[in-house]
Design a protein around this nucleic acid. Structure first.
Length: 489
RNA sequence: CGGGGUGUGGCGAAGUUUGGUAUCGCGCUUGGUUCGGGACCAAGAGGCCUCGGGUUCGAAUCCCGACACUCCGACCA
């Protein structure tokens, strides 16, 4: 029996190196769950939808935080920490907002053994808290703008949960800004959308479509919501970051006023923008393969893993350490694995974890003054002369980063289709999947009908519009707005 | 919220139909041999069978209930 199993394993190994992970072609959802757990990103906790972010998963988030935080501060934003709890009366001040969130908030009703006189909601988002605070501190045009951000977790009582993609608790950053004029607030909204787009494309190697959400899809209480949409490996859409323009709606609801330069009492204009750990789910589903996670070098907690081969042989361990130290000195995130697991085990382990580059160093290499580098994204092996280490490794990492972006970009472009009629849309979604680009009359009615008919939701109206005349696939009226439809996470 | 599946050492499972000493593989510990794609030998450790009630001389197994995970759908910024 044991021998038979082993025989089967040998066969399986030929085309697949890590057997613990379900092939994505077989069951994409199971593949995703396998990767998330086998790569040691998360563990489940005792409460549905609340995840334990393990060190390796959290390290990815820390790298994301570090880069984004720097980008925010570059644009003049400051970090703050708002309270965890929101009094019910405060949450209810903005009508659309409370209607949007009320169904999914969790409430604190007791303090110790005493029932609270007013129940407190655990923040699902912090607009109301920022508004109340600004009502206290903003009086003059000189107090503006306020450019705030906070890193925290929020709670939304979702019915269906999936690691990273939809949790009841999730970690994110929420930026909140307050401006003297609508123009300034709109600029801020667009600027932060661009920050997200650049971050996704340049750091996470995830190509995006920048666009505006329809009224149906926009944030509760917003005047306009902008999004960066990405396409996953299974051709479904993931909203990867959003930026909202609020106008002065919240300011009016919360009574925030300031005296402008003309001594007029005025309502300020507001924005908010957020990106969450959901993006890690996006990272997995954009770059991952049947051997596990694949991380873009720029965000990978470990960029290079050095594996000594035949460690017991003289000089191997020392040489491996030498490589590690040299690469560290060159500013790379590098680690070695000197455990007594077999080399094959280690290869699989770091492939599951998505480490972009592996270096093998064994007796034969030492003899020849070289090492072997293996790319995670395409398995390509390169022999590198040891004296060229500091020059070649960063080049390879750049190549992996670029390779991942190009591959994802190709996936996005090859699976975005143009269509005219609702039947076309349905046909494309059912047979090929992906994004379908059409014109749209702007009517929510048509959007709802299409959802009903073809099972798609509007992803966004891309910022880059061709302005050409066309017809709405539902009502047939002529119109010129381009919109993208898809199935979303 | 509807429908399906699952819950047994850390992980994956068998055992449940037909109640009777809790099994197997992986992992873990120790020692030794290995080392270029998940090595091998030997000796060990580890379990409130998800939880709560019931039936029974006796329950992982039968009955009732709860909870959790997971998939599909609905819902969802």
């Amino acid at each position: 029996m044991g021998r038979l199993m082993k025989g089967l394993k040998e066969v399986a190994k030929e085309k697949k190196q890590v057997e613990q992970i379900t092939d994505m072609e077989v069951d994409f959802a199971q593949w995703y769950t396998d990767v998330v757990t086998k790569a040691e990103l998360i563990d489940y906790s005792g409460v549905k939808g609340l995840m334990i972010l393990r060190p390796y998963g959290y390290a990815i988030w820390e790298n994301i935080q570090k880069v984004l935080d720097g980008m925010f501060k570059e644009k003049g934003h400051e970090n703050v920490a708002m309270p965890l709890l929101i009094p019910e009366s405060l949450l209810q001040k903005e009508k659309d907002h409370v209607e949007g969130f009320a169904p999914e908030v969790a409430w604190v009703t007791y303090g110790g053994s005493e029932k609270l006189s007013e129940r407190l909601c655990i923040r699902p988002t912090s607009e109301t808290l920022f508004c109340e605070h600004w009502g206290h501190i903003v009086h003059s045009w000189r107090d503006l703008p306020k450019l705030y951000n906070q890193w925290c977790s929020v709670l939304r009582w979702e019915k269906t949960t999936r690691p990273f993609l939809r949790g009841r608790e999730f970690h994110w950053q929420e930026g909140h800004t307050l401006h003297a004029t609508a123009e300034e607030a709109i600029n801020e909204t667009m600027q932060q959308l661009e920050v997200y787009a650049e971050f996704c494309e340049n750091w996470l190697a995830m190509p995006v479509i920048r666009g505006r959400k329809t009224k149906k899809e926009q944030f509760a209480g917003a005047e306009a919501t902008y999004t960066v949409e990405c396409m996953m490996h299974d051709k479904k859409a993931l909203q990867s970051g959003t930026s909202h323009y609020f106008g002065d709606g919240f300011a009016k609801a919360f009574g925030i006023t300031f005296t402008d330069k003309n001594n007029q009492l005025t309502y300020p204009h507001q924005t908010s923008w957020g990106l969450s750990t959901r993006i890690i789910g996006g990272l997995i589903m954009t770059h991952g393969d049947n051997n596990g996670l694949v991380l873009p070098p720029k965000i990978a907690p470990i960029q290079v893993i050095v594996l000594p081969i035949a460690m017991h042989k003289d000089g191997v361990t020392d040489k491996a350490w030498e490589l590690i130290n040299r690469l560290k000195a060159a500013g790379l995130r590098v680690r070695g694995d000197f455990s007594d697991n077999s080399p094959g085990w280690k290869f699989s382990e770091y492939e599951m974890k998505g480490v972009p580059l592996r270096i093998e160093i064994g007796p034969k290499d030492i003899e020849n003054g070289q090492c072997v580098a293996v790319r995670r994204d395409n398995g390509e092996k390169t022999v590198i002369a040891l004296e060229e280490l500091e020059a070649k490794i960063p080049e390879l990492l750049d190549a992996v980063q670029q390779g991942l972006f190009d591959k994802a970009k190709r996936n996005l472009e090859e699976h975005t289709y143009d269509a005219v009629t609702a039947d076309d849309i349905k046909e494309i979604i059912n047979t090929k999947g992906g994004f379908v680009r059409t014109k749209w009359c702007g009517d929510t009615e048509c959007e709802l009908k299409l959802k009903e008919y073809a099972g798609v939701s509007s992803r966004c109206m891309p910022l880059s519009q061709d302005g050409k005349e066309g017809v709405c696939p539902v009502c047939g009226r002529s119109c010129n707005t381009t919109i993208i439809w898809g199935v979303a996470y």
